[in-house]
Design a protein around this nucleic acid. Structure first.
Length: 426
RNA sequence: GGGGGGUUACCGAAGCGGUCAAACGGGACAGACUGUAAAUCUGUUGGCUCAGCCUUCGCAGGUUCGAAUCCUGCACCCCCCA
Protein backbone atom coordinates (compact mmCIF):
# COMPACT_ATOMS: atom_id res chain seq x y z
CA UNK A 1 0.00 0.00 0.00
CA UNK A 2 1.78 3.13 -1.22
CA UNK A 3 1.10 6.43 0.36
CA UNK A 4 -0.94 7.69 -2.55
CA UNK A 5 -2.21 10.72 -0.71
CA UNK A 6 1.16 12.34 -0.31
CA UNK A 7 2.04 11.56 -3.92
CA UNK A 8 -1.16 13.23 -5.10
CA UNK A 9 -0.51 16.16 -2.80
CA UNK A 10 3.00 16.57 -4.13
CA UNK A 11 1.71 16.52 -7.69
CA UNK A 12 -0.85 19.18 -6.89
CA UNK A 13 -3.65 16.83 -7.80
CA UNK A 14 -5.81 17.47 -4.78
CA UNK A 15 -8.22 20.32 -5.04
CA UNK A 16 -10.74 19.47 -2.36
CA UNK A 17 -11.51 16.43 -0.25
CA UNK A 18 -14.18 15.44 2.20
CA UNK A 19 -13.11 14.38 5.67
CA UNK A 20 -9.74 16.11 5.21
CA UNK A 21 -8.26 14.87 8.46
CA UNK A 22 -9.17 11.21 8.05
CA UNK A 23 -8.78 10.63 4.35
CA UNK A 24 -4.99 10.07 4.11
CA UNK A 25 -4.93 7.51 6.88
CA UNK A 26 -8.09 5.88 5.60
CA UNK A 27 -6.52 5.42 2.19
CA UNK A 28 -3.29 4.05 3.58
CA UNK A 29 -4.85 1.58 5.94
CA UNK A 30 -6.59 -0.71 3.47
CA UNK A 31 -7.33 -1.35 -0.18
CA UNK A 32 -10.29 0.84 -1.13
CA UNK A 33 -12.56 0.97 -4.13
CA UNK A 34 -12.68 4.29 -5.98
CA UNK A 35 -14.62 5.46 -8.98
CA UNK A 36 -14.61 8.20 -11.57
CA UNK A 37 -17.05 8.99 -14.34
CA UNK A 38 -16.30 9.36 -18.04
CA UNK A 39 -18.01 11.09 -20.86
CA UNK A 40 -19.68 8.63 -23.22
CA UNK A 41 -20.58 11.14 -25.94
CA UNK A 42 -18.03 9.76 -28.37
CA UNK A 43 -16.47 6.42 -29.19
CA UNK A 44 -13.08 7.67 -28.05
CA UNK A 45 -11.82 9.50 -25.01
CA UNK A 46 -9.82 12.63 -25.57
CA UNK A 47 -7.03 14.34 -23.73
CA UNK A 48 -9.53 15.87 -21.33
CA UNK A 49 -10.29 12.41 -19.90
CA UNK A 50 -6.67 11.62 -19.40
CA UNK A 51 -6.43 13.20 -15.99
CA UNK A 52 -9.24 11.22 -14.28
CA UNK A 53 -8.05 8.09 -16.06
CA UNK A 54 -4.56 8.62 -14.72
CA UNK A 55 -6.04 9.19 -11.29
CA UNK A 56 -7.67 5.79 -11.39
CA UNK A 57 -4.41 4.30 -12.58
CA UNK A 58 -2.50 5.85 -9.71
CA UNK A 59 -5.02 4.46 -7.26
CA UNK A 60 -4.81 1.03 -8.81
CA UNK A 61 -1.04 1.08 -8.70
CA UNK A 62 -1.10 1.92 -5.04
CA UNK A 63 -3.24 -1.05 -4.29
CA UNK A 64 -6.77 0.22 -4.65
CA UNK A 65 -9.50 -0.96 -6.95
CA UNK A 66 -10.66 1.44 -9.69
CA UNK A 67 -14.13 1.56 -11.17
CA UNK A 68 -14.67 3.58 -14.32
CA UNK A 69 -18.23 4.45 -14.97
CA UNK A 70 -19.16 5.40 -18.47
CA UNK A 71 -22.39 7.16 -17.87
CA UNK A 72 -24.77 5.46 -20.22
CA UNK A 73 -27.76 6.84 -18.37
CA UNK A 74 -26.27 10.13 -17.29
CA UNK A 75 -24.77 10.56 -20.72
CA UNK A 76 -28.24 10.59 -22.17
CA UNK A 77 -29.05 13.55 -20.00
CA UNK A 78 -25.98 15.69 -19.76
CA UNK A 79 -24.22 17.19 -16.79
CA UNK A 80 -24.98 20.89 -16.38
CA UNK A 81 -21.79 21.49 -14.38
CA UNK A 82 -19.51 23.83 -16.22
CA UNK A 83 -21.70 23.75 -19.30
CA UNK A 84 -23.29 26.88 -20.58
CA UNK A 85 -26.08 25.23 -22.51
CA UNK A 86 -28.18 22.12 -22.63
CA UNK A 87 -26.50 19.31 -24.47
CA UNK A 88 -27.85 17.01 -27.13
CA UNK A 89 -29.19 13.65 -26.12
CA UNK A 90 -27.64 10.44 -27.42
CA UNK A 91 -29.44 7.48 -28.87
CA UNK A 92 -29.12 4.16 -27.07
CA UNK A 93 -27.41 2.50 -30.04
CA UNK A 94 -24.85 5.23 -30.41
CA UNK A 95 -24.16 5.04 -26.73
CA UNK A 96 -23.37 1.34 -26.60
CA UNK A 97 -21.05 1.76 -29.54
CA UNK A 98 -19.26 4.54 -27.71
CA UNK A 99 -18.89 2.49 -24.56
CA UNK A 100 -17.13 -0.23 -26.49
CA UNK A 101 -14.55 2.15 -27.90
CA UNK A 102 -13.93 3.73 -24.53
CA UNK A 103 -13.41 0.40 -22.84
CA UNK A 104 -10.68 -0.67 -25.21
CA UNK A 105 -8.82 2.55 -24.51
CA UNK A 106 -9.10 2.14 -20.78
CA UNK A 107 -7.49 -1.25 -21.00
CA UNK A 108 -4.25 0.47 -21.91
CA UNK A 109 -4.07 2.29 -18.61
CA UNK A 110 -5.97 0.13 -16.21
CA UNK A 111 -5.43 -3.52 -15.41
CA UNK A 112 -8.66 -5.46 -15.70
CA UNK A 113 -7.11 -8.82 -14.75
CA UNK A 114 -5.15 -8.60 -11.56
CA UNK A 115 -7.33 -10.20 -8.94
CA UNK A 116 -8.70 -8.14 -6.09
CA UNK A 117 -7.81 -4.79 -7.47
CA UNK A 118 -8.89 -5.44 -11.06
CA UNK A 119 -10.45 -2.45 -12.72
CA UNK A 120 -14.12 -2.55 -13.51
CA UNK A 121 -15.94 -0.65 -16.20
CA UNK A 122 -19.63 -0.23 -15.60
CA UNK A 123 -22.49 1.41 -17.42
CA UNK A 124 -24.95 3.09 -15.13
CA UNK A 125 -27.72 2.47 -17.59
CA UNK A 126 -27.63 -1.13 -16.36
CA UNK A 127 -29.19 -0.11 -13.08
CA UNK A 128 -30.77 3.19 -13.97
CA UNK A 129 -32.67 1.54 -16.77
CA UNK A 130 -34.50 -0.63 -14.23
CA UNK A 131 -35.99 2.25 -12.34
CA UNK A 132 -39.47 3.47 -12.93
CA UNK A 133 -39.91 7.17 -12.50
CA UNK A 134 -42.17 6.72 -9.50
CA UNK A 135 -39.74 4.34 -7.83
CA UNK A 136 -36.87 6.69 -8.38
CA UNK A 137 -38.76 9.60 -6.87
CA UNK A 138 -39.78 7.52 -3.86
CA UNK A 139 -36.41 5.90 -3.14
CA UNK A 140 -33.98 8.54 -4.26
CA UNK A 141 -35.71 11.84 -4.85
CA UNK A 142 -37.14 12.15 -1.38
CA UNK A 143 -33.63 12.27 0.01
CA UNK A 144 -32.81 15.45 -1.87
CA UNK A 145 -33.77 18.71 -0.21
CA UNK A 146 -34.31 21.13 -3.07
CA UNK A 147 -33.00 24.06 -1.08
CA UNK A 148 -29.65 22.27 -0.70
CA UNK A 149 -29.52 21.48 -4.40
CA UNK A 150 -30.28 25.06 -5.32
CA UNK A 151 -27.39 26.22 -3.18
CA UNK A 152 -24.82 24.22 -5.18
CA UNK A 153 -22.64 26.30 -7.46
CA UNK A 154 -23.23 24.09 -10.45
CA UNK A 155 -26.96 24.74 -10.26
CA UNK A 156 -26.78 28.33 -9.09
CA UNK A 157 -24.68 29.49 -11.98
CA UNK A 158 -27.08 28.01 -14.49
CA UNK A 159 -30.17 29.40 -12.79
CA UNK A 160 -28.95 32.93 -13.23
CA UNK A 161 -27.74 32.37 -16.78
CA UNK A 162 -29.85 33.10 -19.79
CA UNK A 163 -29.86 29.51 -21.00
CA UNK A 164 -31.55 28.44 -17.78
CA UNK A 165 -31.70 24.82 -16.79
CA UNK A 166 -34.13 22.14 -17.79
CA UNK A 167 -35.74 19.86 -15.25
CA UNK A 168 -33.81 16.99 -16.80
CA UNK A 169 -30.49 18.65 -16.21
CA UNK A 170 -31.52 19.64 -12.74
CA UNK A 171 -32.09 15.95 -12.03
CA UNK A 172 -28.65 15.00 -13.27
CA UNK A 173 -27.22 15.39 -9.82
CA UNK A 174 -29.63 12.78 -8.45
CA UNK A 175 -28.52 10.25 -10.99
CA UNK A 176 -24.84 10.73 -10.34
CA UNK A 177 -25.48 10.70 -6.61
CA UNK A 178 -27.37 7.48 -6.92
CA UNK A 179 -24.53 5.97 -8.92
CA UNK A 180 -22.26 6.45 -5.97
CA UNK A 181 -24.71 4.92 -3.52
CA UNK A 182 -25.27 2.03 -5.90
CA UNK A 183 -21.57 1.37 -6.50
CA UNK A 184 -21.09 1.40 -2.77
CA UNK A 185 -23.69 -1.33 -2.26
CA UNK A 186 -22.66 -3.43 -5.24
CA UNK A 187 -18.90 -3.07 -5.16
CA UNK A 188 -18.10 -1.56 -1.81
CA UNK A 189 -16.97 1.62 -3.53
CA UNK A 190 -16.25 4.32 -0.98
CA UNK A 191 -14.44 7.10 -2.78
CA UNK A 192 -15.44 9.17 -5.78
CA UNK A 193 -12.92 11.25 -7.63
CA UNK A 194 -13.50 13.87 -10.29
CA UNK A 195 -12.59 17.31 -11.56
CA UNK A 196 -13.15 20.27 -9.30
CA UNK A 197 -16.34 21.05 -11.21
CA UNK A 198 -17.73 17.74 -9.92
CA UNK A 199 -17.63 18.73 -6.27
CA UNK A 200 -21.34 19.36 -6.06
CA UNK A 201 -22.20 16.01 -7.62
CA UNK A 202 -19.69 14.15 -5.48
CA UNK A 203 -20.97 15.55 -2.21
CA UNK A 204 -24.53 14.92 -3.31
CA UNK A 205 -23.67 11.24 -3.64
CA UNK A 206 -22.08 11.15 -0.20
CA UNK A 207 -25.17 12.76 1.34
CA UNK A 208 -27.48 10.36 -0.44
CA UNK A 209 -25.59 7.25 0.65
CA UNK A 210 -25.66 8.43 4.24
CA UNK A 211 -29.41 9.02 4.12
CA UNK A 212 -30.26 5.84 2.26
CA UNK A 213 -27.82 3.40 3.75
CA UNK A 214 -26.25 5.16 6.68
CA UNK A 215 -22.73 4.78 5.30
CA UNK A 216 -19.79 7.18 5.29
CA UNK A 217 -18.33 7.74 1.82
CA UNK A 218 -15.55 10.01 0.65
CA UNK A 219 -14.85 12.40 -2.17
CA UNK A 220 -11.77 13.91 -3.73
CA UNK A 221 -11.55 16.39 -6.57
CA UNK A 222 -8.60 17.37 -8.74
CA UNK A 223 -7.84 20.75 -10.21
CA UNK A 224 -8.97 21.16 -13.79
CA UNK A 225 -6.16 20.84 -16.27
CA UNK A 226 -6.10 24.12 -18.13
CA UNK A 227 -3.41 25.94 -20.03
CA UNK A 228 -1.73 29.07 -18.75
CA UNK A 229 -3.43 31.10 -21.45
CA UNK A 230 -6.80 29.96 -20.17
CA UNK A 231 -7.62 27.66 -23.06
CA UNK A 232 -8.68 24.08 -22.55
CA UNK A 233 -6.00 21.43 -22.63
CA UNK A 234 -6.28 19.09 -25.56
CA UNK A 235 -7.86 21.46 -28.04
CA UNK A 236 -6.14 22.70 -31.14
CA UNK A 237 -7.32 24.83 -34.01
CA UNK A 238 -8.03 21.65 -35.90
CA UNK A 239 -10.03 20.04 -33.11
CA UNK A 240 -9.64 17.87 -30.06
CA UNK A 241 -6.71 15.56 -29.43
CA UNK A 242 -8.14 12.06 -29.12
CA UNK A 243 -6.71 9.00 -27.52
CA UNK A 244 -7.72 6.85 -30.46
CA UNK A 245 -5.01 6.38 -33.07
CA UNK A 246 -7.66 6.45 -35.78
CA UNK A 247 -8.82 9.91 -34.79
CA UNK A 248 -5.48 11.42 -33.83
CA UNK A 249 -2.38 9.75 -35.16
CA UNK A 250 0.35 8.89 -32.66
CA UNK A 251 2.48 11.45 -34.45
CA UNK A 252 0.00 14.29 -33.95
CA UNK A 253 -0.54 13.16 -30.40
CA UNK A 254 3.20 13.18 -29.72
CA UNK A 255 3.58 16.55 -31.35
CA UNK A 256 0.83 18.01 -29.21
CA UNK A 257 2.78 17.33 -26.05
CA UNK A 258 6.06 18.28 -27.59
CA UNK A 259 4.62 21.71 -28.28
CA UNK A 260 3.23 22.36 -24.81
CA UNK A 261 4.15 25.82 -23.58
CA UNK A 262 6.92 26.02 -20.99
CA UNK A 263 4.48 27.36 -18.39
CA UNK A 264 2.23 24.33 -18.77
CA UNK A 265 4.90 21.67 -18.94
CA UNK A 266 5.46 21.29 -15.21
CA UNK A 267 1.78 20.81 -14.53
CA UNK A 268 1.43 18.27 -17.31
CA UNK A 269 4.39 16.28 -16.06
CA UNK A 270 2.89 16.14 -12.58
CA UNK A 271 -0.70 15.51 -13.61
CA UNK A 272 -0.31 13.18 -16.53
CA UNK A 273 2.87 11.19 -16.14
CA UNK A 274 4.23 8.78 -13.59
CA UNK A 275 7.71 10.22 -13.53
CA UNK A 276 9.02 10.41 -10.00
CA UNK A 277 9.44 13.69 -8.13
CA UNK A 278 13.22 13.71 -8.51
CA UNK A 279 13.00 13.52 -12.27
CA UNK A 280 10.23 16.09 -12.50
CA UNK A 281 12.15 18.52 -10.33
CA UNK A 282 15.24 18.00 -12.43
CA UNK A 283 13.14 18.80 -15.50
CA UNK A 284 11.77 21.92 -13.80
CA UNK A 285 15.30 23.07 -13.30
CA UNK A 286 16.32 22.23 -16.84
CA UNK A 287 13.35 24.18 -18.15
CA UNK A 288 14.41 27.16 -16.09
CA UNK A 289 18.06 27.07 -16.98
CA UNK A 290 18.05 25.88 -20.56
CA UNK A 291 14.56 26.20 -21.97
CA UNK A 292 15.78 25.76 -25.53
CA UNK A 293 16.62 22.12 -24.84
CA UNK A 294 12.95 21.52 -24.06
CA UNK A 295 13.73 18.43 -22.09
CA UNK A 296 10.41 18.65 -20.25
CA UNK A 297 8.39 18.61 -23.43
CA UNK A 298 10.38 15.76 -24.88
CA UNK A 299 10.02 13.66 -21.78
CA UNK A 300 6.34 14.53 -21.52
CA UNK A 301 5.59 13.61 -25.11
CA UNK A 302 7.55 10.42 -24.84
CA UNK A 303 6.00 9.33 -21.59
CA UNK A 304 2.38 10.00 -22.50
CA UNK A 305 2.64 8.65 -26.03
CA UNK A 306 4.19 5.48 -24.71
CA UNK A 307 1.36 5.06 -22.26
CA UNK A 308 -1.43 5.65 -24.76
CA UNK A 309 0.00 4.20 -27.96
CA UNK A 310 2.59 1.77 -26.65
CA UNK A 311 6.11 1.14 -27.92
CA UNK A 312 5.09 0.79 -31.58
CA UNK A 313 3.05 3.99 -31.45
CA UNK A 314 5.90 5.93 -29.91
CA UNK A 315 8.31 4.53 -32.48
CA UNK A 316 5.99 5.61 -35.27
CA UNK A 317 5.61 9.05 -33.80
CA UNK A 318 9.36 9.43 -33.56
CA UNK A 319 9.95 8.20 -37.07
CA UNK A 320 7.32 10.58 -38.35
CA UNK A 321 8.86 13.45 -36.41
CA UNK A 322 12.22 12.74 -37.95
CA UNK A 323 10.72 12.74 -41.40
CA UNK A 324 8.50 15.76 -40.90
CA UNK A 325 11.44 17.83 -39.82
CA UNK A 326 14.26 15.92 -41.32
CA UNK A 327 15.95 15.76 -44.64
CA UNK A 328 14.83 14.42 -47.94
CA UNK A 329 12.28 11.68 -48.10
CA UNK A 330 13.35 8.77 -50.21
CA UNK A 331 13.45 5.00 -50.42
CA UNK A 332 10.45 4.42 -48.22
CA UNK A 333 7.55 2.06 -48.81
CA UNK A 334 3.97 3.08 -49.48
CA UNK A 335 3.08 1.51 -46.16
CA UNK A 336 5.56 3.56 -44.19
CA UNK A 337 4.64 6.80 -45.90
CA UNK A 338 0.95 6.11 -45.48
CA UNK A 339 1.46 5.59 -41.75
CA UNK A 340 3.54 8.67 -41.27
CA UNK A 341 1.28 10.91 -43.26
CA UNK A 342 -1.99 9.42 -42.14
CA UNK A 343 -3.27 12.80 -40.90
CA UNK A 344 -2.28 14.56 -44.06
CA UNK A 345 -4.66 15.22 -46.93
CA UNK A 346 -3.95 13.04 -49.89
CA UNK A 347 -4.77 13.20 -53.56
CA UNK A 348 -4.94 10.36 -56.00
CA UNK A 349 -3.66 11.07 -59.47
CA UNK A 350 -3.43 8.95 -62.58
CA UNK A 351 -0.06 7.25 -62.90
CA UNK A 352 0.22 8.36 -66.51
CA UNK A 353 0.60 11.95 -65.31
CA UNK A 354 4.17 11.07 -64.45
CA UNK A 355 4.99 10.25 -68.08
CA UNK A 356 6.79 12.88 -70.10
CA UNK A 357 6.46 15.80 -69.79
CA UNK A 358 5.51 15.17 -66.18
CA UNK A 359 3.01 16.58 -63.70
CA UNK A 360 3.51 20.29 -63.27
CA UNK A 361 4.46 21.23 -59.71
CA UNK A 362 2.18 24.24 -59.88
CA UNK A 363 -0.75 22.01 -60.78
CA UNK A 364 0.17 19.58 -58.04
CA UNK A 365 0.22 22.33 -55.43
CA UNK A 366 -3.16 23.61 -56.55
CA UNK A 367 -4.78 20.19 -57.00
CA UNK A 368 -3.63 18.98 -53.61
CA UNK A 369 -5.22 21.94 -51.90
CA UNK A 370 -1.94 23.21 -50.52
CA UNK A 371 -2.48 26.28 -52.65
CA UNK A 372 -5.84 27.81 -53.46
CA UNK A 373 -4.98 28.55 -57.08
CA UNK A 374 -2.23 28.11 -59.56
CA UNK A 375 -1.32 31.72 -59.02
CA UNK A 376 -0.78 30.99 -55.36
CA UNK A 377 1.19 27.92 -56.31
CA UNK A 378 3.40 29.94 -58.57
CA UNK A 379 3.96 32.48 -55.81
CA UNK A 380 4.76 29.77 -53.31
CA UNK A 381 7.48 28.42 -55.55
CA UNK A 382 8.91 31.90 -56.09
CA UNK A 383 8.96 32.45 -52.34
CA UNK A 384 10.88 29.27 -51.80
CA UNK A 385 8.06 27.65 -49.91
CA UNK A 386 7.49 24.61 -52.12
CA UNK A 387 9.07 21.25 -51.40
CA UNK A 388 8.95 17.87 -53.08
CA UNK A 389 9.90 15.05 -50.72
CA UNK A 390 11.24 17.75 -48.41
CA UNK A 391 13.61 19.13 -51.02
CA UNK A 392 13.00 22.76 -51.88
CA UNK A 393 12.09 23.41 -55.50
CA UNK A 394 12.46 26.91 -56.84
CA UNK A 395 11.93 26.26 -60.54
CA UNK A 396 8.54 27.50 -61.73
CA UNK A 397 8.63 25.03 -64.59
CA UNK A 398 9.38 22.04 -62.39
CA UNK A 399 7.45 18.87 -63.07
CA UNK A 400 7.04 15.66 -61.13
CA UNK A 401 8.32 12.56 -62.82
CA UNK A 402 8.74 8.92 -62.05
CA UNK A 403 12.13 9.61 -60.53
CA UNK A 404 10.48 11.82 -57.92
CA UNK A 405 8.54 8.98 -56.37
CA UNK A 406 9.51 8.64 -52.70
CA UNK A 407 8.00 5.17 -52.45
CA UNK A 408 6.36 2.80 -54.93
CA UNK A 409 3.52 5.19 -55.77
CA UNK A 410 3.80 8.27 -53.60
CA UNK A 411 5.28 11.72 -53.65
CA UNK A 412 5.27 14.00 -50.63
CA UNK A 413 4.42 17.60 -51.28
CA UNK A 414 5.03 20.29 -48.73
CA UNK A 415 4.28 23.96 -48.45
CA UNK A 416 6.05 26.07 -45.90
CA UNK A 417 7.22 24.53 -42.67
CA UNK A 418 4.71 21.86 -41.97
CA UNK A 419 1.83 21.72 -44.39
CA UNK A 420 1.97 18.46 -46.22
CA UNK A 421 0.00 16.67 -48.90
CA UNK A 422 0.46 13.15 -50.10
CA UNK A 423 0.18 12.38 -53.81
CA UNK A 424 -0.72 8.81 -54.68
CA UNK A 425 -0.25 7.76 -58.27
CA UNK A 426 -2.42 4.97 -59.53
C1' G B 1 -43.05 60.55 -44.59
C1' G B 2 -38.82 64.57 -45.40
C1' G B 3 -33.29 65.64 -45.45
C1' G B 4 -28.15 63.99 -45.28
C1' G B 5 -24.12 60.21 -45.31
C1' G B 6 -22.44 55.52 -46.69
C1' U B 7 -21.68 50.49 -49.52
C1' U B 8 -13.83 49.41 -52.28
C1' A B 9 -10.09 43.11 -52.17
C1' C B 10 -10.10 38.39 -45.92
C1' C B 11 -11.10 42.82 -42.39
C1' G B 12 -10.45 48.17 -41.56
C1' A B 13 -9.61 52.18 -44.69
C1' A B 14 -7.69 55.68 -48.98
C1' G B 15 -8.85 56.75 -53.94
C1' C B 16 -13.35 60.98 -56.65
C1' G B 17 -12.28 60.61 -65.20
C1' G B 18 -6.87 58.03 -67.71
C1' U B 19 -0.24 56.63 -64.96
C1' C B 20 -5.81 51.59 -60.53
C1' A B 21 -5.51 44.87 -59.84
C1' A B 22 -6.50 49.78 -56.66
C1' A B 23 -2.18 53.68 -51.32
C1' C B 24 -1.94 52.44 -46.04
C1' G B 25 -2.87 49.29 -41.58
C1' G B 26 -4.38 44.57 -39.65
C1' G B 27 -4.77 39.52 -40.76
C1' A B 28 -3.07 35.48 -43.63
C1' C B 29 0.85 32.98 -46.40
C1' A B 30 6.19 32.29 -47.47
C1' G B 31 11.49 33.22 -46.27
C1' A B 32 15.47 34.50 -42.53
C1' C B 33 16.29 34.09 -37.37
C1' U B 34 14.82 30.57 -33.32
C1' G B 35 13.52 26.14 -29.01
C1' U B 36 8.99 22.48 -34.29
C1' A B 37 8.20 28.79 -29.11
C1' A B 38 7.56 34.12 -28.76
C1' A B 39 9.40 38.55 -30.65
C1' U B 40 11.79 40.63 -34.87
C1' C B 41 13.17 41.43 -40.02
C1' U B 42 12.11 40.61 -45.46
C1' G B 43 8.79 39.34 -49.28
C1' U B 44 3.87 37.97 -51.10
C1' U B 45 -1.40 38.62 -50.72
C1' G B 46 -7.93 38.54 -57.72
C1' G B 47 -7.57 34.68 -61.83
C1' C B 48 -4.99 32.60 -66.03
C1' U B 49 -2.22 29.51 -71.24
C1' C B 50 1.86 35.12 -66.30
C1' A B 51 7.49 40.26 -69.37
C1' G B 52 1.08 39.36 -71.69
C1' C B 53 -4.15 38.66 -71.06
C1' C B 54 -8.95 38.28 -68.38
C1' U B 55 -12.48 39.48 -64.36
C1' U B 56 -13.03 42.80 -59.98
C1' C B 57 -14.51 48.63 -56.32
C1' G B 58 -23.21 46.99 -53.44
C1' C B 59 -26.68 45.59 -58.08
C1' A B 60 -28.57 47.03 -63.08
C1' G B 61 -28.29 50.37 -66.88
C1' G B 62 -26.17 55.02 -69.16
C1' U B 63 -22.50 59.20 -70.51
C1' U B 64 -17.31 58.99 -72.38
C1' C B 65 -12.00 57.28 -76.81
C1' G B 66 -11.57 55.79 -71.50
C1' A B 67 -15.29 55.01 -65.08
C1' A B 68 -13.85 52.48 -58.50
C1' U B 69 -14.26 57.68 -59.89
C1' C B 70 -19.72 61.31 -63.64
C1' C B 71 -25.43 60.35 -64.48
C1' U B 72 -30.16 57.29 -63.67
C1' G B 73 -32.76 53.44 -61.23
C1' C B 74 -32.72 49.45 -57.42
C1' A B 75 -31.12 47.06 -52.77
C1' C B 76 -29.00 47.32 -47.95
C1' C B 77 -26.79 50.24 -43.76
C1' C B 78 -26.08 54.78 -40.67
C1' C B 79 -27.41 59.79 -38.95
C1' C B 80 -30.83 64.07 -38.49
C1' C B 81 -36.05 66.05 -38.72
C1' A B 82 -41.40 64.18 -38.33
Amino acid sequence: MNDIFSDLTWRGLIHQTTADDQLPAWLNSASRTVYAGFDPTSNSLHVGSLLPLMMLRRFQKSGHRPIAIAGGATGMIGDPSGKSAERNLLSAGQLSENLQGIESQMRRLLDFECGDTSAILVNNNDWMGQFSYVEFLRDVGKNFPVNVMLAKDSIKSRLTSEAGLSYTEFSYMLLQAYDFAHLNREYGCELQIGGSDQWGNVTAGIDLARRMHGVQLYGLTCPLLTKADGAKMGKTESGAIWLSAERTSPYTFYQYWLNIADEDAGKCLRFLTELDPQEIEALDQSRQESPHLRESQKRLAESITLMIHGEPGLAKARQATEIFFGAEIQDLSDGELGQIFSDVPSLTVGFDQLQEPGYSLIDALADSGLCKSKGEGRRTIKEGGAYVNNRRISDLEATLQRSDLASETMIVLRRGKKKYALLRFQ
